[in-house]
Write a protein that binds this DNA or RNA. Structure first.
Length: 279
DNA sequence: AGACAAACCTGTCTGC
DNA sequence: TGCAGACAGGTTTGTC
């Protein structure tokens, strides 16, 4: 769920904590991504007494900048992560792993049942030195994806285009749901080797990726299960998905008599229309 | 290079 | 009703 539109929805709904000051930092003691413990002392040192300056996003990563502090808080929601602010006195939800108390009594909480998500620190202005952030391709919403660069990057890999889209280096922020959605909009078969895509089809795909993500963002993201914004609202985009999780349903193209099919690629479900989407 | 599997976890749904 | 197994939005790592 947390792909670019969901993370951007969280970023936007974090606006009410900008200007708030951190008075305490708490950790559940449970390991987060890949079984690694949180570096609590460093997080305390970096954030205690600091004031939230801005929330930024890089791909699916959320970055919280702190006024006059060299380190920013870097958050990834993984599969089931939530990042929310709560009014004073709101009880702590189960599976809360990191909690920041604010001087006005509110709290900011990172909650994640599966603990595939992560909270860490990143040096402000040197985000690209971070191993994961450094690999990220251009942002289809915040920035511009250059079609000829995208085409060149595609020509360098024979991997199926659906797999290549999930890699984050071609473009940042596309996950399993929107990869299927964008390929359907662009009429491209998910198994097409990336290197076989013409410049023209790359252009259609770049446009489709941007439009699919923008449409989802307009609906506050897709909530299949866990996702909510930073103020606790579910996204509505699951009602507007064309192919994702719609196996055996009629293709949404009114002129197409086809049916959506599902298969597994790289251990992930892919949905597509065999009539509309060509190699 | 790339296909494939496993690892990190819990919750939910399906089928027997 | 209960239990086992499959599966889920992501990323990293290792093997072949």
């Amino acid at each position: 769920m947390p792909e670019l539109p969901e993370v951007e929805t969280v970023r936007r709904t974090l606006a009410p904590i900008v200007g708030a000051t951190i008075s305490s930092v708490w950790w559940s003691g449970k390991n987060l991504r890949l079984g690694k413990p949180l570096a609590l002392p460093a997080l305390r040192k970096a954030s205690k007494g600091a004031t939230f300056e801005a929330a930024r996003r890089l791909g699916k990563y959320l970055i919280l900048d702190l006024q006059d502090r060299p380190k920013s808080i870097l958050v990834h929601l993984g599969m089931s992560g939530r990042f929310r602010h709560f009014p004073p006195g709101a009880p702590q939800p189960i599976h809360t792993h990191v909690e920041w108390g604010l001087t006005d009594g509110r709290t900011l909480r990172f909650t994640d049942p599966r603990r595939f998500g992560n909270v860490e620190l990143v040096t402000r202005g040197r985000e690209r030195d971070h191993a994961s952030l450094g690999k990220l391709g251009p942002d289809p919403i915040d920035g511009v994806v250059d079609v000829s660069e995208f085409h060149q990057a595609c020509s360098r890999t024979k991997r199926p285009i659906k797999v290549a889209l999930l890699d984050q280096s071609l473009v940042a922020g596309v996950g399993n749901i929107y990869a299927s959605e964008a390929l359907w909009q662009a009429n491209i078969h998910p198994k097409t080797p990336a290197s076989k895509l013409s410049l023209r089809r790359c252009e259609r795909l770049v446009i489709a990726v941007r439009e699919v993500l923008e449409r989802a963002l307009m609906h506050g993201g897709t909530s299949l299960k866990d996702f909510v914004s930073a103020d606790g609202h579910a996204g509505e985009h699951s009602h507007y998905l064309w192919v994702y999780d719609r196996e055996d349903v009629a293709c949404p193209n009114p002129e197409c008599p086809g049916t959506i099919r599902r298969f597994v690629q790289q251990q992930r479900a892919t949905f597509y229309c065999p009539r509309c989407q060509k190699h």
